[in-house]
Each structure stands twice: as C-alpha cells, then as structure tokens.
C-alpha cells in the first residue's frame, strides 16, 4: 500500500485524534453517524464500528450515493460524518458535494482522509491536490485543514456542533504538535504561529510545522518571518491577510496544487486589495512517481525550500 512514514517519537497520526473525538461525540449524541465507501480501515473507524454498529453506514464502493446518502441522513435529522479518501470523496462525488451539500446547505461533514500526496507512489489518481481548487468556490461549505492532532480534535468537535456543511481535510502523515501556548480553535481565523514583520509565511495542514522551521532558518539570517496556520481555507480570514500583506511579501505553503488552492486564494486577495509579491510553494500538477517524503523534498515543501521561496519573495519586495 501507500507510503506511510514511520511515526517517529513526537509525531502523531491525526487520524487517531479524529476517531477518538468522533467516538466521544457519538457517545453523547445519538444523531452522529458515519458514512463510508468501504473505507472503514483507512478512516480508522473499526473501533467506531464495534461500538456503534448500526451507526456506521457502509454504502460500498460508491461515492456518489455515499455523499447523497449523507444529505438524506441530514434531512432525516442525523449528523453524518462522511469519510473517505480525499481524492474520491471530492473528485468522484464533486457534483454531489456541490449540489447536495453546499448548494442545498445540508448539515453534513465530509472527512477527506489521506489528503494531498499521502499516497505517494500510488500516483496522481490517488493524490488529492486539486481539492482546494474544486471546493473553495462552493458557497456555504467551510473548508478546514487541521495542522496537528490538537487542531484535528478541535475541528471535529466544532464541525459536529456547526449547522452546515464542512469539509475536514485530514492527513495520515505524522506531524508534530505545534508549539503554541493557550490555543483556542477559531474557525475562519488564521492562527499566529510566530510573529514577525519582514515577510508572512501562510501555511496549512501538514506544512505548518515546516513553515515554522523555515522561520527558524530565516531568523538565523536576520529575517523575521510571521508564520500563520491558515487552517480555514473557506471562508478566508481577510483581516489576517491584510496584516500579512502589510509585511510586504508573502509565501504560501500547502500540500496541494499551487493552482487554485491556498496560494491562489491569497493571490486573489492581495491582487485585489493589497498587491505584494506572493510566492507559492506546493505542487505544479500531476507528479512523478515518488514517496511522500521525496515529493515534499523535490517540490520544496521543506524548511529549506520554504526559506528559498521567502528569499525570492523578499527580492521582489518593493
């Protein structure tokens, strides 16, 4: 199967936080159900299935009906968490996500598993790097990309009590806990990971800790970078983007296509409101064969790659 980097000490598979939180919520609220497309194991829902057998609805390998059933369950007063590999839950069922969830504004939570390039060598069919571009324009749909285990748990809790459609974009890639004191999860708001005024690095998901490490590299060179955890992609935190643009240069980092995703959103915003150089770190399109780690290194999703992008942006700074 796919590349899964061995979990080193201090790194966490955020899927554990997802399932532990979902089970807690389901204990307390009988309306919560899970819907899957034969993806019980990859969604880590085996334990949920044992505890709540009738509340785990496996429609088989059929993503269109999986998302449609989610909308119907919401119509019937349930709170469905529809969980499957991101590449299929978005791409295969995109019209259902658009019409049945976003446009109809049903209270359904989509949970995209193994997003980005988590499936490494399995190739472009199994990568989910287009999902931001596909989902970001959908009115009503909140898109959240948690950066670590704590934020994953908080996002799942928030999604359960929010009345409306949500896309939670999770990863199986082990990530460290972000070192931020006194955190509060605020959907729709960027989180300041580090203060700085020379440049802003705007990252999401699995790349936030890399952006923080890049800021350390830059610090050693006397460059003070602000680092933002931009975990809500839709709607955009415009106030945070105004403050980021005020630094005069921006780098965006995402485990996604550089076309139409977080970088695209930031470029749209800055070009209309506060033009500054924006360097986008991410993937250019369909990718060659390679492990997740190799793809991250090759395309500059690394402290060094992000620092290099910062230098490019600073060179263009007025």
């Amino acid at each position: 199967m796919a590349t899964v980097t061995p979990t080193a000490a201090g790194l966490q598979d955020c899927r554990n936080a997802w399932v532990a939180t979902l089970e807690q919520l389901a204990e307390a609220d009988p309306r919560i159900v899970a819907v899957v497309n034969d993806s019980v194991g990859s969604s880590k829902l085996n334990s949920f299935q044992k505890k709540f057998a009738d509340r785990l609805i496996n429609v088989g390998i059929a993503e269109q009906v999986m998302v449609g059933v989610g909308a119907g369950l919401a119509n019937g007063g349930r709170i469905p968490f529809v969980s499957a590999a991101s590449c299929f839950i978005t791409g295969r069922a995109l019209e259902q996500v658009k019409a049945d969830l976003a446009y109809a504004n049903f209270n359904v939570k989509l949970v995209g598993q193994s997003s980005g390039v988590a499936y490494g060598e399995l190739g472009a069919t199994h990568h989910s790097i287009e999902d931001f571009a596909w989902l970001r324009p959908l009115t009503n749909l909140t898109v959240i990309v948690p950066a670590d285990a704590w934020e994953t748990a908080e996002a799942v809790k928030w999604a359960a009590q929010h009345d409306g459609p949500v896309y939670l974009r999770l990863s199986r890639m082990p990530v460290p806990d972000l070192d931020i004191p006194n955190r509060t999860f605020r959907p729709g708001k960027a989180e300041v990971v580090r203060e700085g005024s020379d440049i802003a690095i705007i990252a999401c998901g699995t790349t936030v800790h890399l952006a923080a490490d890049a800021a350390e590299v830059l610090q050693a060179e006397g460059i003070h970078a602000r680092v933002l955890n931009f975990s809500t992609i839709n709607p955009l935190d415009e106030a945070a983007l105004h403050r980021a643009a005020a630094t005069g240069a921006i780098v965006t980092v995402e485990e996604a296509s550089i076309r139409g995703g977080l970088g695209g959103a930031v470029a749209e915003f800055t070009s209309a409101n506060q033009p500054v150089p924006v360097e986008r770190v991410g993937f250019p399109g369909f990718l060659p064969t390679g492990s997740t780690d190799w793809l991250f290194q090759e395309y500059g999703l690394s402290p060094e790659g992000i620092a290099a992008a910062a230098h490019r942006a600073l060179k263009r700074k007025a």
Binding site: V65, G68, G72, P80
Partner: peptide
C-alpha cells in the same frame, strides 16, 4: 433537497429512508 442535475434525488431519498 436541491435537484436539477439528474441522478441526485434517489441517493438523497435513500439517505432519508436510512435515517
């Protein structure tokens, strides 16, 4: 539910019936 693109209502109705 919102319909228009064909083939959407039956899956949603199936979900309503499952609920």
């Amino acid at each position: 539910t919102n319909t228009g693109p064909l083939g959407h209502g039956f899956p949603v109705a199936t979900g309503i019936a499952i609920a």
